[in-house]
């Protein structure tokens, strides 16, 4: 069975819990005392991931690090319908990769701001927040135009992809870093759509949405 080295309050770990829940993949978690214990910098963990970062997945001996990389792996392997990461659609794969990199940018800004405010990391808070707002403006614009073209998700597929999963957590948690989403109405609507995907689960800090109107 898949083993997820996990910390409950990590948005990056949540990306994987979320996708596995949606795909109905069984997994077990190995709790890592990220805070305050800094167990991800412990000797045993560094052997698993020399970068000293969560998350890490061990699937029957295949050890992978980096949330985005793991999303690719899980979707490519376990999504029978092949919509979350459509392996035979080069254009879409390009788009997905582009937004996975964008998601990493959200981690280094919005998540950094949250680590600063909540866990007292020594980051420059103003730079982190400004960086997050810059990315949110780009994404809000992208999603607003998407709505005009009947594109509901980040990439131009009918269904959501792992790009949506990768961007979602640290956007939802941004307020914990003092980054309001008030100026991003299209992002707020997209968050509601994600929350209504079958199999959606929450993490601490993320509330569920109510049901959509029955058609």
């Amino acid at each position: 069975m898949i083993k997820l080295y996990d910390y409950e309050l990590s948005g990056n770990c949540y990306k994987l819990r979320l996708l596995m829940s949606i795909l109905g993949v069984d997994y077990k978690t190995v709790p890592v005392d990220f805070y305050p214990g800094r167990e991800h910098k412990s000797e045993w963990f560094l052997k698993l991931n020399p970068l000293g970062q969560l998350p890490v997945v061990d699937d029957d001996g295949l050890v992978l690090r980096d949330a985005q990389a793991i999303l690719v792996y899980l979707a490519a392997k376990y999504d029978a319908a092949g919509t979350w990461y459509p392996r035979d659609n080069p254009e879409l794969l390009g788009e997905i990769s582009q937004w996975l990199a964008f998601a990493d940018g959200i981690t280094s800004t919005a998540s950094a701001a949250r680590l600063h405010d909540a866990l007292f990391y020594d980051f420059d808070i103003n730079t982190a927040r400004a960086g997050a707002h810059r990315l949110f403006r780009i994404l809000d614009e992208h999603l607003w135009f998407g709505e005009r073209q009947e594109r509901q998700w980040i990439c131009s597929a009918k269904q959501p992809t792992i790009a949506d999963i990768a961007c979602f957590p640290y956007i939802m948690l941004s307020e914990e870093g003092g980054i309001s989403r008030q100026d991003y109405p299209a992002i707020r609507r997209w968050c509601d759509r994600i929350k209504r995907i079958n199999g959606f689960i929450v993490m601490s800090g993320v509330f569920p949405a109510g049901p959509a109107k029955a058609a």
Partner: peptide
């Protein structure tokens, strides 16, 4: 807000002159 900001089953976060609003369209 724009009319399009209020799809069903959503709550829009608005603000005017410092006062925040929760704006929502009922079914």
């Amino acid at each position: 807000a724009a009319t399009d900001d209020l799809p069903l089953r959503h709550v829009f976060h608005g603000q005017l002159l410092g006062r925040e609003f929760a704006v929502w369209r009922a079914d």
